[in-house]
């Protein structure tokens, strides 16, 4: 049986996408290095990274839920809650990222706890939304109904923030299991996000080979940081894989922008394709989780020693 031949679109835009990714990732990496507080112990560094990760997750959720709930015409007042809580989480997490010494303060902790709890309620709402559609728990409704992953990301952001506080609670984390548990949580976060990206890329029939990237690199990163929770030596493998995952989180929106360009009318038709094309704000979730993971590695290694 002969493979169907169809003319392929020019690869030049894809080369531009790759170049833009490298440039953006380098720029962001350099900025983060500069902004990073080099002082402080491993706990501070972990708290800061967890805060930054939570903030990035919140940006992703805020934009994604704002766009998706706009598609849903904010039919239910409750649809304002998602983006609002994501903004609250963004504020609190950013505060922690810049002032990690305040991570254990009461206010940011309460804020992030609330954000996390809202994520769970959102998850319940979204599940209900899926189950009430004709066909109930079917692939079709999972493809096109309210996504379970989005509110879950809010819960993760909340958890990261709360853990950041715990890191600075004054206990000797090196002797507790907190870094290990956090590493396991990061692994779980990555796998959840991989599941969501994989499912949605499956909906897109993996029509572009680049769509396999988020289901190959992040699972390896999840595996390695999961292993690092058990034996800290694995952290050596986790670092480059988490960095690669972070680059994916930066590359994602650029690839998705190219995806919108591939749709009918391209960016000229953005009013439709921002909703129907690949979601621009979703991939940075990988960046957020990877950033948190990278931050916890030193504490993990120290605990191992």
């Amino acid at each position: 049986m002969l493979a169907p031949r169809q003319p392929e679109p020019s690869h030049r835009p894809l080369i531009a996408v790759a170049a833009a990714t490298v440039a953006t990732a380098t720029g962001l990496g350099w900025l983060l290095q500069r902004a990073w507080n080099p002082k402080g112990d491993v706990n501070h560094r972990a708290a800061q990274a967890l805060g930054a990760g939570a903030a990035i997750l919140c940006i992703s959720v805020a934009l994604d839920s704002a766009i998706e709930h706009y598609r849903g015409q904010f039919k239910d007042r409750a649809m304002f809650v998602g983006p609002t809580m994501a903004l609250l989480g963004l504020g609190a997490a950013t505060y922690i990222a810049f002032r990690p010494e305040h991570a254990n303060d009461r206010l940011p902790k309460i804020a992030l706890f609330t954000v996390g709890a809202t994520g769970l309620i959102g998850l319940a709402f979204h599940s209900y939304n899926i189950l009430k559609r004709p066909g109930e728990l079917s692939a079709l409704n999972l493809f096109y109904g309210a996504p379970a992953g989005a509110p879950a990301a809010l819960t993760l952001a909340g958890l990261y923030g709360v853990i950041a506080g715990e890191m600075l609670s004054g206990r000797d984390n090196v002797s507790t299991r907190l870094p290990k548990h956090t590493a396991a949580l990061i692994a779980f976060s990555l796998m959840g996000t991989v599941a969501e990206a994989g499912f949605l890329h499956f909906r897109g029939a993996f029509q572009d080979p680049a769509m396999y990237a988020p289901v190959t690199i992040p699972p390896l990163a999840a595996l390695s940081i999961g292993a690092a929770a058990l034996t800290p030596r694995a952290a050596a493998f986790a670092e480059p894989l988490l960095k690669a995952t972070a680059v994916l989180g930066i590359a994602g929106p650029i690839f998705h922008a190219y995806g919108i360009h591939r749709n009918m009318g391209g960016w000229h038709n953005w009013t439709q394709m921002i909703l129907q094309g690949p979601p621009l704000p979703a991939p940075p979730a990988f960046l957020g989780i990877a950033a948190a993971g990278l931050g916890i590695l030193p504490a993990l290694q120290e605990a191992g020693e």
Binding site: R71, K75, M264, G265, H268, N269
Partner: peptide, 17 residues
């Protein structure tokens, strides 16, 4: 409706256009 079609397809759902 070309190139722009419709994004919202369900009951009581309406695109701004």
């Amino acid at each position: 409706a070309s190139p722009r079609g419709y994004a919202r397809l369900g009951f009581d759902e309406r695109d701004p256009w």
